[in-house]
């Protein structure tokens, strides 16, 4: 009846004030075990104060093949950056 344990992604907040960051993945039968394993595998040396685990199948990822369509439009919108605007050097605090 062997059924493999599903894959989980692990996110760890290293200290309060910082966001959770992706640390890696692991296999576990359920969320509780994923949490326990994440603690043992990814925080043996005080690397974190909070852990999120989510089953990998619930993550929707963008495809690198769509990168042009997704990210290139931002490249020619230089007017979104402060350096686009010419101001005289005399203007202070801006």
């Amino acid at each position: 009846m062997t059924k493999n344990w599903p894959l989980w992604e692990v996110f760890v907040r290293s200290k309060n004030g910082l966001e959770h960051r992706h640390f890696g993945s692991l296999h576990a039968a359920d969320a509780e075990m994923a949490m326990e394993n994440a603690r043992d595998v990814y925080t043996r040396r005080n690397e974190g104060v909070s852990i999120w685990v989510v089953e990998s199948k619930y993550i929707t990822a963008s495809n690198p093949q769509d990168n042009g369509e997704l990210f290139e439009p931002a490249q020619d919108k230089i007017y979104r950056h402060p350096t686009f605007y010419d101001l005289p050097d005399d203007v202070k605090h801006m």
Binding site: M1, T2, K3, W5, A29, D30, M33
Partner: peptide, 16 residues
């Protein structure tokens, strides 16, 4: 360890 892995999976499925 196979029976332990199977039991954990069966338990998880039951809980779900």
């Amino acid at each position: 360890g196979a029976w332990v892995r199977d039991a954990a999976m069966a338990y998880a499925e039951k809980q779900t």
